[in-house]
Every structure is written in C-alpha cells, then in structure tokens.
Design a protein around this nucleic acid. Structure first.
Length: 633
DNA sequence: TTTTCTCCAT
C-alpha cells in the first residue's frame, strides 16, 4: 500500500527487534524473545506509556511483536497513539504497516490512528484508502475518524470546499458534529486564507449551541495575528475572559508575537506585563519572540534587559533565543557581538545549528567578506552541521552581487550534488545574477531549468526576467513575455511589473508607448500608479525633453496621485538645469524646499558645474541662490 | 485505546 517512510529509523528498530531471535544470544534472549513481555514493558503499558521516548517506543513495539502470546490489539493501539502524540506520524505509519505484514489484524482504533496520521501528513489519498479498507471489514467510522478525515481534506492543497461539504454530508448521514469538527474546519479555513469564513464559523458554532473552547480561540487568534489583525485578536482575548475561558501562555505569546511583527511593539510589551500580572509565567517562546522583536527594532537595551530577566527567572535561553539574537546583531552589522554570542551558546552547551551558521554566513556576506563567509561555511560542515538551501542561497546571492556568477553557479552545482533542490528564491537569485553580468543567454537557460525542474516561478521571477531583458537592451523580448503574462497566465502582476516595463520603454526611447501603458493602467482601473510609476514616467518625459508633459504629470500628482517625492523634484530640476533654465529650476527648488526635500548629490553637482562654467558671467546671483538652496540640509 | 489547536530563529 505504501512505501516505508522512515526507513532508517525502522531499520534501526528492526535490527534490535531481530537481535533476541539470533541463537548466539543464548537461552535468555530466546526466552525473552518468545515469552511474554518484560515486567518493565507491562508496567509501561499499564501506566499509559507516559513520557516514553521514541526509541523506547520503537523498542517496545519490537518486543511486543516477538512476545507470545502477543499483547492485545489494545496495547498496540496505545503504543501507536503514544507515538502519534509525539507527532512522529511517519513512524506510526511504518509500524502500522509492519503489523499488517506480520498478520496482526488492525481494529477500529488502529485504523483510526493511521487515518489520522496520513491526514496530518497531508496524504489524504492514503487515508481514504484505509477508510475504504476498514469499511470493507465492517468497521463503521465514528465521529472521531471523520474528524480526522475532515482534517485531511482541510490540509490538502485544494480540497477545502470538499471539507466544508463533508460536514454537511456528515449531518445528512446522521452524525452529530462536535466542537472538534468545528475547530478542525475553522483551522482549515485559515490554512486556506479564508479568514472571514473562519471567523464567521465561530459565530455559527455559537448559534448552534457549541461553546468555543481554548482550541477554537487558539486557532482563531493565531490566524488573525499572522495576518496582522491584532486588534481583532485583542478583542478575542477580552471575549475569552467574558466567556470564562482562561487564556494561557500560548495565547498571550501568539498575540504578543503578532503585535511585534506588525509594528505594535509597545502594545506587545504592555501585554507582556499584563500577562505576568495575571500570574501567567512567560516561557522560552514568549521571551525569544519578544527579544527577537525588540532587536529588530533596534531596542537593544530592552532586549538585553529581557534576556537578563529571563535568565534570572530560570527560563533558560535555548537555541532559538540565541539564533534570534545572533541574527539581529548580524543584520545590524555587529558581527563581533554575534560571534561572541556564538561562543556563549557553545559555553552553555547549546549546539549551533544550521540556522545559527546561516546567520553568521549572512553576516559576512552582507559585509562582502566572501572569503570569511566561505570559511564559516567550511566550519559549519566540519561540525557536521548540514547546509541547507538557505545556506546556499545566501552564498549564491552574495557571489552574484559581487559579480562572481561563475562562483555562484559552482555553488549551485555543489548544492545539487548534495541532493538539495534550489527553490524559487535560489533560481531568482541566479537568474538575476546572470542578467546583471549581461549574460541573457544563461539567465534564460537557468529559467528554463527552473521550469523543467518543477520549481514555480513567482512574480519576482517575472520581474527579474522583464527587468533583465530591458536593462540589457532587449525590450522586444521583454514585451513578448509581458504580453504572455497579461494574456496567458494567471500570474498576479503588481505595479512593480508595470514600472519595470514603463522604465524599459522610456530607456529605449519609446516614451509614447510608455505613456500608453501608463494610461492603460488607470483606464483598466486594476492598478493604481504609485510614486515610482510617476517618477519613472516623468523621468522618461524629461529624457526626451518633453518638459510640458513632465510638468503636467507633476500637477496631476498634486491633484490626485501619490505625493511627489524628493526624486520627483530632483528629476524635474535636473532636466531644467541641463537646459540652462534657471528660473524654472529656481521655482521648482523653492517648491521642493517648501515640501521639506532637498537636492540630491547629482542635482547638486549639476548646479556646481553650472556655477563653475558660468563663473564671471552675469548670473552669479541666481546661481548662487540655487546652489545655496540645493545644498542646504 | 482513536480526533481538532495555538507561541520564537536563517
């Protein structure tokens, strides 16, 4: 029915299972192998396998399979259930398969557990196969089995509507949905980004007389926080209080994390105090999340205070805490501090992992210290820490940025040899690298490889292709792709894509085409030109000497477009300066200054050049004012 | 004996 999933683990188990039956083990082993279970194992099963480790559970399975008489199927189902609780679904599936092979018949519960495991692994078809099998054997699925199956439909890529339908079918068939049914579906709707339906289902649940529980709230709060609706999450927290459901540390941590990630850092800190005042103890997640957030906002002293607080209160920082700190330091360019933390974590016997090394490698890359980045990579490998696709993508990106595409390609090859597959980000990086080194041929080649390798191009890929062709003087090629994108694909184009094309057209001297595209945006009404669109178009007009059109666009911006930026004014001013139109320049500079912007480097140098070339002539005064005006601030 | 769920890092 199915491949063995966790082969190495199972083989490990197998060798230990096989050991007692080998005759060199002698009588005792033989006796142990074919007599009943050891007292220890009996005791374990009796107390419900509490706190059993995975290895011991697999050992126990081996013992149970060998013992005579065999333990009851109830004992097997307890064991499978215990392993399922560790979320080792693949192990459960392997063991279930093993039972099948050894002729140990499954029952309603073991089938149900297997269905659950397949569903949790999003392998709905296998779950359905088991359901068919169990029904053929006369076992009628109960609400628990159906809830598991519902979860399977929810986790499947495209069967959420079937999940919704399944609940109706369940009712038609006389099953009574329960809170778990609702919770599962609510979570499923969130998984598919159907936020409003998920929230509405909570209300429907209440209407039907079901009380949302901690799990319902957990799912909803997590769902809305991840999407930035933190105000809604805070309301839900109040609602929980009103419903007399006590929020736990996880609920609080979830909301705090959501607040932090969506720029409400102070609210998160407040909630932290509120939680503590309610006697709920923050755990390592709470601290790590908050520390990481504070670091990201540059609030180093707050972060370090929290770290001390954490240690003082005997919550040990774990690898995630350290990784968060290291990454934050790296992004600040504080590599020395990051390395100090690296030493400290080793001192605390926390082994750095791939993420730790990825951050450190990224640190060197950000400073363009590629040799040291590679040394760190070597160190990582020497410590048996496996590089992953992020490690390689980081390095590939760094090499591309310093125009060493060949080295980047070499890294890509090495990655593939390690059995790692490039993802969309890896390919995007490499394609961009080739374009930036002017190699359209290879850029296209890599793109082809990406598609044939089954890696889905995203909006970024398209933008890189269009921009790459435009910037390498191949506007025609870009246009062909652009048309295809609009007509043949369902790729969601953003304003960025249009900006690239407008810029490409302008740079190729086709300002009229660019202007048509600009207008079609508004006519179609689907996309609103942003500040970049306007600035690009204005720059295009200026480049062609179409000053009136450029001015008209500035006026339009002031009427109903995005607010003109420093770039808008600088572009217009430079165009006037190049024409020697000092009065118009002065006028624009005045306006720019009144809006709080000032001249950028290239505008200032233009003014300076004019000043020098006209020295001794009559217009000193105006120019001097210009220079003063652009350079101030 | 079986089911749902939620918190931190590249």
């Amino acid at each position: 029915m199915r491949r063995f999933v966790h082969r190495n683990l199972l083989e490990k188990g197998d060798s230990r299972i096989a050991r007692p039956s080998i005759s060199v083990c002698g009588f005792r082993c033989w006796r142990r192998a074919f007599s009943g279970l050891s007292d220890d194992s009996r005791e374990r099963l009796r107390n419900g396998l509490r706190d059993i480790k995975l290895d011991d559970a697999v050992d126990l399975f081996g013992e149970m399979v060998k013992s005579r008489p065999r333990p009851s199927i109830v004992d097997f189902s307890k064991l499978l259930s215990a392993i399922a609780k560790m979320k080792k679904f693949d192990v459960v599936i392997s063991l279930g398969e093993k039972m099948q092979m050894l002729g140990i018949p499954h029952n309603h519960y073991t089938y149900s557990i297997l269905i659950n495991c397949f569903c949790r692994r999003s392998e709905l078809s296998f779950a359905l196969a088991i359901l068919g099998k169990m029904m053929k054997l006369g076992y009628k699925p109960d609400i628990v089995t159906l809830n598991s199956l519902l979860n399977g439909f929810c986790r499947h890529g495209k069967r959420i509507s079937d999940a919704v339908a399944l609940v109706d079918q369940m009712v038609e068939m006389g099953y009574q949905p329960n809170t778990v049914t609702f919770n599962t579906l609510i979570h499923g709707l969130f998984l598919h980004n159907r936020v409003s339906e998920a929230v509405a289902l909570v209300d429907r649940m209440v209407l039907k007389g079901y009380q949302p529980d901690l799990i319902t709230y957990g799912a909803v709060i997590n769902g809305v926080c991840k999407r930035g609706h933190t105000d809604l999450a805070l309301n839900l927290l109040k609602k929980m209080e009103a419903d007399k459901i006590e929020a736990d540390v996880v609920i609080y941590s979830t909301i705090m994390d959501g607040l932090c990630k969506h720029k409400h850092v102070n609210d998160a800190v407040d909630l932290f105090s509120e939680m503590e005042s309610k006697g709920i103890r923050p755990d390592v997640y709470t601290y790590s999340s908050l520390i990481s957030c504070l670091c990201n906002y540059g609030r180093w002293s707050d972060a370090s205070r929290l770290l001390s607080d954490m240690i003082e209160k005997n919550t040990n920082p774990d690898i995630v805490t350290f990784n968060a700190l290291i990454d934050a330091f790296v992004k600040e360019g504080k590599l020395l501090e990051a390395e100090k933390l690296y030493e400290e974590m080793i001192g605390r016997s926390i082994a750095p992992n791939t993420i730790t090394y990825n951050s450190l490698i990224n640190g060197f890359c950000l400073q363009n210290r590629l040799e040291e980045a590679k040394q760190m990579f070597a160190l990582m490998v020497s410590k048996d820490c496996l590089p992953n696709v992020v490690t390689y993508s980081t390095l590939i990106n760094a090499f591309c940025k310093s125009k060493k595409v060949e080295d980047a390609v070499e890294l890509f090859r090495e990655m593939t040899q390690r059995g790692l597959f490039g993802n969309t980000i890896t390919y995007n990086t490499l394609i961009k690298g080739f374009f930036e080194s002017g190699d359209c041929e290879n850029a296209q080649q890599v793109f082809k490889q990406m598609v044939s390798g089954g890696v889905t191009p995203d909006t970024m890929t398209c933008n890189i292709l269009l921009d790459g062709f435009c910037k390498n003087g191949k506007l025609e090629k870009a246009l062909v792709i652009f048309k295809d994108l609009q007509q043949k694909t369902e790729m969601e184009l953003s304003i960025v894509t249009y900006n690239i094309m407008i810029e490409g057209m302008c740079k190729a001297g086709k300002v009229e085409d660019a202007w048509d595209l600009f207008n079609s945006l508004r006519l179609k009404g689907v996309m609103k030109p942003d500040i970049v669109t306007y600035n690009t178009m204005i720059s295009g007009f200026c480049g062609k000497g179409l000053k009136e059109e450029a001015d008209a666009l500035l006026t339009k911006m002031k009427e109903d477009g995005p607010l003109p930026s420093s770039g808008t004014y600088n572009t217009l001013i430079r165009a006037r300066l190049r024409d020697g139109d000092k009065d118009a320049s002065a006028e624009l500079i005045k306006e720019m200054r009144s809006r709080g912007f000032c001249g950028d480097a290239s505008t200032i140098s233009l003014v300076g050049n004019m000043f020098l070339s006209l020295r001794g002539l009559v217009e000193h005064a105006t120019l001097f004012r210009l220079k003063a005006a652009t350079c101030e601030g």
